[in-house]
Amino acid sequence: MALKQNMSDWAADLINSKERAAIPIMTHPGIEMIGKHVIDAVTDGTTHFEAIKAIASQYPTSAATIIMDLTVESEAFGCRINFGEHEVPSVMERLVHDFETVSNLKIPDMNSGRIQEYLKASRLAAENIADRPVFGGCIGPFSLAGRLFDMTEIMTAAIIEPETITLLLEKCTKLLLQYVLEMKKTGVNGIIIAEPAAGLLDETLCEEFSSKYVKLIVDATQDENFMVVLHNCGNTGHLTQSMVNTGAAGLHFGNRIDMLKVLQEVPSNILVMGNLDPVGVFKMSDAGQIKTITSNLLKATREYSNFVISSGCDTPPGVSQANVDAFFEAVNDFNYNNITSKQLTY
């Protein structure tokens, strides 16, 4: 039975809590915990769910998340995908290249590619993880359009062929809207929309080619029982207001941004998540370093009750369990000391 959770209340509870919530975007350690490979989880909804469940059983995350796989929707459109046993999938080649090919592009249905497997993983997670909200995931409209049009080419086409890219974005948004509504039906409590490519744009282009379309999805899907979190790990600080403008109730930031500046800019009723480096910290540091870096970020952001500590992006395959343990130990220590010091003050 899926957890029916008023997400506005949930967010308010996190903001009012004395404890700092932790929601790392983390599924790959779960895949390793159940003895499977990346390819198993990204192609089979049940395996994917088991990995999510393993993380939820082992760690006190404040919400469960699914794999940030940015190829599912491109594959549904018809892109060829490269799958590696231990690697996240990637798009092999562009599908469209001009106005005509974009005009001819058909919007796929919900039985295309691996969409049903991702819906299945979300449904199983929603039904079986009852002690915390579950967030589904999808790619953002501009990042999807970039995969279909070629990421390098779309950057210039947005400027010199805006009508082509606008048409492509309309088609991408139609698919995403349908997908998010289907995901909502699975019982998940929200969705993380991953829009990393928008981070490469300036503010004006981001507003025109990303945020406007993200807002359409937010407006059509977000309600008190379903929260949208917008992830943009490419934003170095120039796009924060544009992210706020989408209306998403949660914003998720990458490791290149100054988290304190973000917290100063974002309204205090929006959850702000981030931003430990998934590679430099989670994967390449040792447990002691992770504890120190996590602890430093928690201390630096202490004043901001809407902050949720997280990884700056999906933690990659190959992160050791010792490192994940160290992250949660640091969160636990911080919360313990925070509560103890508050009690002493009274």
Partner: peptide, 14 residues
């Protein structure tokens, strides 16, 4: 200096 971004760079390169 973050005064222009990837699209502007690429269009200059083009």
């Amino acid at each position: 200096e973050n005064k222009v971004f990837v699209p502007q760079m690429l269009i200059s390169a083009k």
